[in-house]
Design a protein around this nucleic acid. Structure first.
Lengths: 244, 244
DNA sequence: CGTTGCTTTGAACTAGCTCAAGACCTGTGG
DNA sequence: CCACAGGTCTTGAGCTAGTTCAAAGCAACG
């Protein structure tokens, strides 16, 4: 029941089938719960890691820094995600994993995760699939970073976050919590904070979204999707979660 | 020996250990060889695929198109790569897989690949690792697309291609074939062709590289790396291939 | 009720874009 | 062997989306 991995199970169900046996394997994994302060770097670029981090509450993000002081945010992660799952096979980190807000997380030792995967090819397949969807998401962002204007990029970010949060039950209707500053949005979209601010205002003025106190409401989903040229296919949800 | 999968075996050796047994499994897989004309789309965005494509000769690339007519090239793939390996677990494509040049490829049915992976957890781990390195590469490009200037992005592209080609034995010293037009380079870097041309001239003028007839020579590796802020760690080569 | 961090605004500046045209190369058919 | 066609590369010039710098307003927290 209240086990920490319930969030993981719920998340995995949004992207594929999970057998009773595989659920049991996940529930059997030992985890260590931890509270993270806002801004805490859980694993740093270049570090070697022997465990992965499951988000239980709050938001995390991945980021890479340039020598010149630039920061690119690569992805945002709500509850249910294991952002550094890849460290299972790539011990050395190539980005910082950071707590965007205060977070509750569960650490899973690679030893224990491997033991569970060893016992089930289907569970291995599902976790692999999860990491492939992650990669598909990077591809979608690359398209935006390379080809989209600021307003298209921002619309795309809101579309993706909405779909992912809704799938794990973190949206009420078309409203969701997105506790991320404009500075972070700017660094995710590869634009300046000043421009992020003006672009956000533009989306509001066009009646596409409202934002207040980190709560986003999509006012015109069709128009937002259209602007972002958003096609949720790349998120590879199971049919039940593909909706809208 | 001359089996088509030798190139795959060689590539996998650059990123991890491959046991005799796993090699034998790979050699035992049935493949269908095909010749591709330049520009041929092997699998198109949105299509459902039941096989993957191993590059034997020539170059392939992944691309995504925008409704507005833009194109983002996501990655280039020399011999040994299986660009659409992810279709093993994500049946529906989220990009076009295209022959950049004339190519020789080997198609591997997912059925046969799964059968081999079923028999070996270590081979599964290695293939998974390969797809994770692919994702790490996307992250490196995202950093460039979001934070780098045109010259930094271009330097980074040449650094990455050099390292990858050298690892699979496709570089003589610091020279390698890169049969890709400036139009394609521009679409990979998210800049206009005009600007790609000028940026390339700038790299030449600075004495970093020369290019003639699709043959690239790196003249000043240290300076090129410096400009790109290139750290090959994300490619996760085994120690023997990590050199330089 | 002051400090700290976030958001908003104005205004000058610039990297890269678009449009347009000419040069160059390479393969093809006569 | 030449001429032409189609793609690629190169150059010039005006334009714009987004940047940088700087300062002011605002909200939350101790």
């Amino acid at each position: 029941m209240g086990s920490a991995v319930e969030r993981l199970i719920q998340k995995l169900r949004t992207i594929g089938d999970l057998s009773q046996a595989d659920e049991a394997l996940l529930r059997g994994m030992p985890v260590r719960i931890a509270e993270l302060r806002k801004g805490a770097i859980v694993v740093a670029d270049g570090e070697v890691s022997s465990r992965s981090c499951l988000v239980l509450d709050g938001f995390m993000h991945r980021e890479k820094l340039t020598p010149a002081g630039g920061r690119q945010i690569l992805s945002f992660h709500p509850a249910g995600d294991i952002p550094d799952l890849q460290s299972l096979h790539l011990k050395k980190m190539d980005y910082n994993l950071v707590a965007t807000t205060e977070c509750r997380v569960a650490f899973i030792e690679h030893r224990d995760l491997n033991a569970a995967l060893q016992k089930s090819a289907s569970l291995t397949g599902l976790m692999w699939r999860d990491s492939l969807i992650d990669a598909a998401s990077f591809r979608a962002w690359m398209l935006m970073l390379g080809q989209g204007d600021a307003d298209e990029r921002m619309a795309h970010l809101f579309c993706e976050m909405f779909m992912r949060l809704r799938a794990i039950g973190l949206a009420r209707g078309t409203t969701f919590q997105f506790p991320v500053t404009q500075i972070e949005i700017a660094d995710a979209l590869g634009i300046s904070t000043v421009h992020a601010n003006r672009t956000l205002q533009e989306l509001r003025a066009r009646g596409l979204i409202t934002v207040e106190r980190f709560e986003v409401t999509i006012l015109d989903w069709a128009a937002l999707k259209e602007l972002a040229a958003f096609d949720p296919a790349y998120l590879h949800f199971t049919d039940e979660n593909a909706g809208k």
